[in-house]
Design a protein around this nucleic acid. Structure first.
Lengths: 199, 199
DNA sequence: TGTACATCAGTGAACGCGCGTTCACTGATGTAC
DNA sequence: TGTACATCAGTGAACGCGCGTTCACTGATGTAC
């Protein structure tokens, strides 16, 4: 998911990181750990341990654990947005593009279970409408635009909004049910969201 | 949600509980605590404290913390099933009944956020098909039957199954987005699931 | 009815655990003169 | 070029915390004779 995954195992040394390097290494390590385990089990100390640095070193780069997690969220949101855009492009836009977007969303969640949960449970920053932007900024904007484009041109704003939320709910619900092993994670199930009455 | 909510504040005493009473009291206390806080923050010690009993007393009734949580799940599943059935009856069955069922599902999640999350994250018991029964036994069976009844009679088993899962995903996704404050929790949003193309 | 005893649901003290965070520190780097 | 010094990203020890669980125990209840 992240280009510089390999940098995780860099050996630490006094002043061994160039400016900002340890920060990135901590984020990468955090993302990797989230790929293997649950959010609740991710500890600041473990992230530091993984990078090979003392726990207190983390505090040079993040005021507290919460900030570290926020940084992981931001990284995740960008990755999700990127994969959505890529899927849209590859499918060539329009309805197929929209469907590909939904599938990419589910695939992202399955590939990054804990990160995805973290992103969803970190509520959007204050001052925004609850369904506007937030941690999932780019991804949600794209969704709304796509939904709007597929509705009849005389659809009201409220209708567009509702359709976007419904689409989001379907795709999010499917992803969560799969993550929680309530629904099989097979490819056919993922693709089925395009065949349903919804999308 | 539970008939004997009031029994939580019973004063404990040596041998003060009749057979099985403490067990129920612990479950009720657990459900109450889940109504106020997150699952991760629910500790065995806190449940015992709430009931007014030593932490070790819990081990007379549950082998470990996990078993206590399982008992809460079972209680939750029954409550959810009951509220679904009630909604179905009240709306008089058919499509309106089905829609009411979906709304009741969301309302249950909103009223019992942590319990609902716990129920969903506790994977179904082994040996069952992933989308068959599990912790949510009654509720899911009802859903599948209702969906099947609303589809054209010549629909295949696979189609019925898929439609049921889609309906579940929509309603579950909406509930989760609301719990995570990504979507406003208003009544209109809840009712909108009936107006969408899905249900 | 009285006595001896088994049962078993409670008790409080204690365990080890990993956590987030604070603290005073060290020592390499970069800069000013 | 050499020297003095400020900066600041690291260090390891220590803190208090609440947790789940184990332990040996106590004492009321129910039962057999």
């Amino acid at each position: 998911m992240n280009a510089d995954d390999n940098s995780v195992n860099i050996k630490p040394a006094k002043r061994g990181y160039h400016h900002g390097d340890l920060r990135s290494a901590l984020i990468v390590a955090g993302l990797n750990l989230l790929r293997k385990g649950a959010v609740e089990e991710l500890s600041l100390r473990e992230v530091a341990r993984t990078v090979g640095v003392s726990a207190t070193a983390v505090y040079r780069h993040f005021p507290d654990k919460q900030s570290l997690l926020q940084a992981l969220c931001i990284e995740g949101a960008e990755a999700l947005g990127a994969s959505q855009r890529a899927a849209m492009m590859e499918a060539g836009g329009g309805k197929p593009g929209f469907e590909a977007t939904g599938q990419a969303y589910i695939r992202f969640a399955l590939a990054n279970p804990a990160l995805y949960r973290l992103m969803m449970s970190t509520r959007p920053p204050e001052g925004l409408m609850p369904d506007e932007d937030g941690a999932l900024n780019g991804a949600m904007r794209l969704l709304r635009e796509n939904v709007a484009a597929l509705l009849p041109p005389d659809a009201s704003t409220a209708e567009k909004r509702q359709a976007a939320i419904h689409a989001w709910a379907l795709v999010h619900g499917m992803a969560m049910l799969m993550l929680d092993e309530q629904v099989p994670r097979d490819e056919e199930m993922i693709c089925s969201i395009s065949r349903g009455p919804m999308l």
